[in-house]
């Protein structure tokens, strides 16, 4: 064997070992989620234990966590927020690029500046305004509105760059001559052309909002409106002695994302890179 192939084999071996290390925690929780509580502590590494492996944990965790309702809440919050973010940010960016009004330039600068403000700095005033003054906590709408507000600067920034760089104004002028108003021009001509940016933003925000914990946990304090991360955190608190149920709950929280990832892997990876590099 030449030195080259030895090196190649060695690299592959290292990659496989690292891969196993990265996957190990997932393997462990899946394996143990099918076991009896005592077998989890006594024989955590083996397949099965004194009692046979069972899916009973999942049935119980599903019920106790109120999984369907929680899943639905997460879906509503993430889905509505992402749709509104895409719609309103793209419209806003469009007018910012095409109309050089003073207010547009000022607002765009303000948005860019605001991107350095971390969530923790506005967290306390946010709760004091929306909880104390408006009494608007515990509604999914409030959370959706806040997700929109927090996502606007970055989304506007990305659409802004794309429109300025890649959408020729001549198309819009032609539409205008043909008698299309600004709304029609935007939705029929400009918006379809922005698919790459839209895809990136949908992926970034779907992941981020689905996993978000801190903001939802402050806004949604009623069982009926819990999202998945909040439910998992409470489930852990309630069942910290029942590893069997907790592990099943954790696996159920991960499965939707993994399925999505397996289906859209190429797009997700491209989207995440595009999002990071542009910002």
């Amino acid at each position: 064997m030449s030195g080259r192939t030895v090196k190649g084999v060695l690299k592959t071996v290292v990659a496989i070992l690292l891969f196993l290390f990265y996957m190990f925690p997932f393997y462990m929780i899946v394996l143990n989620s099918f076991k009896d509580k005592r077998d989890i502590t006594k024989l955590p590494l083996s397949w099965g234990g004194k009692k046979p492996m069972t899916a009973q944990n999942y049935v119980e965790a599903f019920k106790n966590m109120n999984f369907l309702s929680v899943f639905k809440n997460s879906l509503i919050v993430t889905g509505c927020s992402v749709a509104l973010i895409i719609l309103f940010s793209s419209m806003c960016a469009y007018i910012f690029v095409r109309k050089a009004w003073k207010i547009n330039n000022f607002l765009f600068l303000l948005m860019m500046f605001s991107m350095v403000i971390p969530f923790q700095v506005v967290m306390i005033p946010l709760i004091s305004i929306y909880g104390g003054i408006f009494g608007a906590l515990n509604h999914r709408y409030t959370l959706i509105f806040m997700h929109l507000g927090f996502s606007v600067p970055m989304s506007v920034f990305m659409y802004h760059g794309f429109i300025r760089g890649s959408i020729p104004i001549s198309l819009e002028e032609a539409a205008h001559i043909d008698g299309a108003g600004p709304l029609r021009t935007f939705f029929q001509i400009v918006f379809p052309l922005m698919k790459p940016t839209t895809a990136t933003l949908v992926i970034l925000y779907a992941l981020a909002l689905w996993n978000d914990y801190l903001l939802p946990s402050l806004i949604l304090t009623d069982r009926k409106v819990y999202t998945l991360p909040i439910a998992i955190a409470l489930f852990q608190g309630t069942y910290s002695n029942q590893m069997d149920l907790l592990l099943a709950g954790l696996v159920m929280a991960i499965i939707p994302i993994i399925i999505l990832y397996l289906a859209l892997q190429k797009y997700i990876i491209a989207g995440v890179v595009a999002g990071a590099v542009k910002s």
Binding site: L84, F88, S89, M91, C92, Y94, I95, F96, N104, L107, L110, M111, S114, I117, V121, V122, P125, L126, I129, F145, M146, L148, G149, F150, V152, P153, V156, P182, F186
Partner: peptide, 17 residues
């Protein structure tokens, strides 16, 4: 075009800040 986005941005980031 800009109303909804600007309203949410102001209400959630700038005013609380």
């Amino acid at each position: 075009f800009a109303g909804p986005a600007v309203l949410a941005f102001m209400a959630v980031i700038i005013i609380p800040f």
